[in-house]
């Protein structure tokens, strides 16, 4: 028996919004420690990694580990039927071929349940090595989204260059070039608005705008985003989901011409 209850279904709505551009379907691996999802996009350029810890749920029971393959568009249709402040309970029997989502309104005046067929997905899991990154940048997530959106008007790739002076996002194309520089802030009062840079070695890497823009669909999940970079390894774009876990996107770099 698997049962996970979360007071606010809006968190799941936001997660689905954040990954549905990249993934059509995905396996949710449920165990005693929580719910995990790892999946590459169709082009195998990026990887989505979601972790929701069992202790972040209001109720969590997982007698036996199970993997639930779900069509994310259909899951999004079901969550559209929930109000943001509805409580959601996800339920499945051991070895079941369906999953049930139950939504309860705050005052219990409305209870609905939706049963969805599970899919058998043959998804391979990749081993992600522990990395000491050369640069770790934390910045307001809406600012990162804004920069990606702005620069993608001018080019297909963004060069992210991190030095101790700050982070520079650059692009170029037929129109010309665009550069946005972000410096570390000294404003320690407003953590959500701060920019911090931890740099061991300067790093410059090039990434496809299309993917960066997809990742920023996760902006409503967290006020801050963390970018981790080392030479010649994938970028990690991480959104912390408060008290519950994280959503990470890994993006393979482009080789510069």
């Amino acid at each position: 028996m698997f049962e996970a209850r979360l007071v606010s279904s809006s968190t799941f709505k936001k997660i689905l919004d954040a990954v549905k551009d990249l993934l059509n379907e995905a396996s949710f691996d449920c165990s005693e420690s929580g719910i995990q999802l790892q999946a590459m996009d169709n082009s195998h350029v990026s990887l989505v990694s979601l972790m929701l810890r069992s202790d972040g749920f209001d109720k969590y029971r997982c007698d036996r580990s199970l993997t639930m393959g779900m069509n994310l568009a259909n899951m999004a249709k079901i969550f559209k039927c929930a109000n943001n402040d509805d409580t959601v309970t996800i339920k499945a029997q051991d070895d079941a071929d369906t999953v049930t989502f139950m939504f309860e309104a705050k005052k219990q005046e409305k209870i609905s349940d939706y049963e969805m067929k599970l899919m058998n997905l043959d998804q391979e899991h990749l081993g992600i090595p522990e990395t000491d990154f050369s640069c770790v940048i934390r910045m307001p997530s809406p600012e990162f989204a804004r920069i990606c959106r702005d620069l993608s008007q001018f080019g297909e790739s963004i060069v992210i260059s991190c030095t101790k002076e700050g982070v520079k996002f650059s692009t170029g194309g037929d129109i010309g070039t665009a550069n946005v520089k972000i410096a570390q802030t000294n404003n320690f009062d407003k953590e959500e608005e701060s920019v911090t840079i931890e740099m061991q070695e300067p790093v410059t890497l090039t990434f496809a705008c299309q993917y960066l823009n997809s990742f920023t669909k996760a902006t409503p999940l967290a006020p801050q985003v963390q970018l981790s970079m080392s030479d010649n390894v994938p970028l990690v774009v991480e959104y912390q989901i408060p008290d519950l876990g994280h959503l990470r996107f890994y993006l393979a770099p482009k080789i510069e011409d």
């Binding site: 350029v45 081993g127 496809a208 994938p234 393979a252 770099p253 482009k254």
Partner: peptide, 14 residues
């Protein structure tokens, strides 16, 4: 796209 590397070049299969 030209010059785009794949993510599974970096992470081995489990």
């Amino acid at each position: 796209a030209r010059g785009q590397r794949k993510i599974d070049e970096f992470f081995g299969k489990n």
